[in-house]
Design a protein around this nucleic acid. Structure first.
Lengths: 143, 143
DNA sequence: ATGAAAGATGCAAACATTTGAAAAATATTT
DNA sequence: AAATATTTTTCAAATGTTTGCATCTTTCAT
């Protein structure tokens, strides 16, 4: 029995060369059930592909994001985290006082997105919504 | 007639020391009717305050953002732009193919924000919403 | 299979932003 | 008005991310 050939259109990385580095990176992100940052991903990848470079990690993160496979999270000031993009998009509310992060979903946002897509005939591959401000505790402290 | 003393609570930079650098930076941002990036702001500020440092620019941009005075825009990959925050919040739709940026407002987003504020008793000082994807032209090109 | 073309990788360097620490400025208390 | 406490500024160094270029790999068409 012959192996079935995988044509490019069928793979998740549509129309792009499938390199070892590329599928390794996507594998790692898929199997990690958490937010990873670029450096964590780089160190995990090095275990199986020791010559991989950090630039390749960044370039592929950018590609995966553009293809809508992962979501980039910029919650703190210093660096981004990445995670597999599941069915429901969720967003973040960040308190500038104590740093707590509240995740939320919103049917209003989903509606807004649909409308935007329709009105502009756009194929939206990623949504980044972050609201910042002060939670009730931190509000009080500041008075 | 005596000059009226300005107490800190009355100024726009609530409860913070009003330094030359700080008010200069806010002035420049106010008078520029466009998105400025950190480096542009730095060079403009240097004309009036030659010893100002880039670190001060960044630290104050961060402060102004937290106070809700300006909005940070992360439209490209490389660096942020900043603008005075007007009455109506607007958001951005970025095409990853051709780079065009469409600004939009949405009552759905406003509703979502209100709800989030109420449900979490949060004081929201900034909203960053960016959608990325492919416009109708770029969609077709990719086939 | 083979060769040409397109695209990806690794390295090093550039760029953008954040941070620690000492000195300076501003605000508060006496 | 002086002394003290608080916050900001500057400089330099560290961190995080992007990019140019030469080389290598994958894909496509024969």
């Amino acid at each position: 029995m012959r192996m079935k050939t995988i044509r490019k259109e069928e793979g998740p990385i549509a129309g792009r060369p499938v390199t070892n580095q590329r599928s390794l990176l996507l594998d790692i992100i898929r199997q990690a059930n958490r937010h990873l940052d670029a450096d964590e991903l780089y160190r995990l990848a090095k275990k199986r592909e020791p010559r991989i470079s950090l630039a390749t990690v960044y370039r592929n993160l950018k590609l995966f994001k553009e293809l809508g496979l992962i979501a980039e999270r910029k919650l703190g000031d210093t660096h981004s985290h990445y995670e597999i993009r599941g069915a429901a998009d969720h967003h973040h509310l960040v308190c500038l006082g104590c740093g707590q992060v509240i995740e939320f979903e919103s049917p209003f946002i989903a509606k807004a997105t649909d409308k935007i897509k329709r009105e502009n005939d756009f194929d939206v591959t990623s949504i980044q919504l972050k609201m910042e401000g002060y939670c009730s505790k931190c509000k009080k402290k500041m008075k």
